[in-house]
Amino acid sequence: CFKERTRSLLREWYLQDPYPNPSKKRELAQATGLTPTQVGNWFKNRRQRDR
Score class of each variant (00 low, 15 high):
1 C>F: 15
1 C>S: 12
1 C>E: 08
2 F>V: 12
2 F>K: 14
2 F>M: 15
2 F>T: 12
3 K>Y: 10
3 K>C: 15
3 K>L: 07
3 K>M: 05
4 E>P: 12
4 E>K: 11
5 R>V: 14
5 R>S: 15
5 R>N: 10
5 R>K: 07
5 R>F: 08
6 T>C: 06
6 T>R: 07
6 T>S: 08
7 R>T: 07
7 R>H: 15
7 R>Q: 12
7 R>E: 11
7 R>K: 15
7 R>M: 12
8 S>I: 14
8 S>V: 13
8 S>C: 11
9 L>P: 04
9 L>G: 03
9 L>E: 06
9 L>R: 08
9 L>K: 10
9 L>H: 07
10 L>D: 00
10 L>V: 00
11 R>S: 13
11 R>L: 13
12 E>L: 07
12 E>C: 02
12 E>G: 09
12 E>W: 11
12 E>H: 08
13 W>M: 14
13 W>F: 06
14 Y>M: 01
14 Y>D: 00
14 Y>E: 01
15 L>I: 13
15 L>D: 15
15 L>R: 15
16 Q>C: 10
16 Q>I: 15
16 Q>H: 11
17 D>Q: 02
17 D>L: 04
17 D>W: 03
17 D>I: 01
18 P>R: 11
18 P>I: 06
18 P>A: 10
18 P>L: 01
18 P>M: 06
18 P>Y: 00
19 Y>N: 09
19 Y>W: 08
19 Y>L: 08
20 P>D: 02
20 P>A: 07
20 P>F: 03
21 N>I: 07
21 N>K: 15
21 N>L: 08
21 N>Y: 01
22 P>E: 14
22 P>W: 15
22 P>F: 11
23 S>V: 12
23 S>E: 14
23 S>M: 09
24 K>R: 12
24 K>E: 08
25 K>C: 12
25 K>S: 06
25 K>D: 03
25 K>L: 13
25 K>F: 08
26 R>G: 10
26 R>M: 11
26 R>S: 13
26 R>H: 14
26 R>P: 01
27 E>K: 15
27 E>F: 09
27 E>C: 02
27 E>G: 02
28 L>G: 02
28 L>A: 00
29 A>C: 05
29 A>P: 01
29 A>F: 00
29 A>T: 03
30 Q>A: 11
30 Q>F: 09
30 Q>G: 11
31 A>F: 03
32 T>I: 05
32 T>D: 00
32 T>Y: 00
32 T>Q: 00
32 T>C: 13
32 T>R: 01
32 T>M: 05
33 G>W: 00
33 G>F: 03
33 G>R: 05
33 G>Y: 00
34 L>Y: 03
34 L>G: 04
34 L>N: 01
35 T>Q: 10
35 T>H: 03
35 T>N: 10
36 P>S: 09
36 P>I: 12
36 P>E: 14
36 P>Y: 13
37 T>C: 13
37 T>P: 07
37 T>Q: 15
37 T>R: 14
38 Q>K: 01
38 Q>I: 03
38 Q>V: 07
38 Q>P: 00
38 Q>G: 03
38 Q>E: 05
40 G>Q: 10
40 G>K: 15
40 G>L: 03
40 G>A: 11
40 G>Y: 01
41 N>K: 15
41 N>G: 06
41 N>V: 09
41 N>P: 05
41 N>W: 07
42 W>H: 04
42 W>D: 04
42 W>F: 03
42 W>N: 09
43 F>A: 00
43 F>Y: 04
44 K>F: 07
44 K>D: 08
44 K>H: 08
44 K>Y: 06
45 N>Y: 04
45 N>I: 07
45 N>A: 07
45 N>M: 08
45 N>H: 10
46 R>Q: 13
46 R>L: 06
46 R>D: 04
46 R>C: 05
46 R>N: 07
46 R>M: 11
47 R>I: 05
47 R>P: 06
47 R>N: 06
47 R>S: 04
47 R>D: 04
47 R>W: 04
47 R>V: 05
48 Q>A: 14
48 Q>T: 10
49 R>V: 11
49 R>K: 14
49 R>L: 08
49 R>W: 07
50 D>M: 03
51 R>H: 13
51 R>C: 03
51 R>L: 09
51 R>D: 15
51 R>M: 06
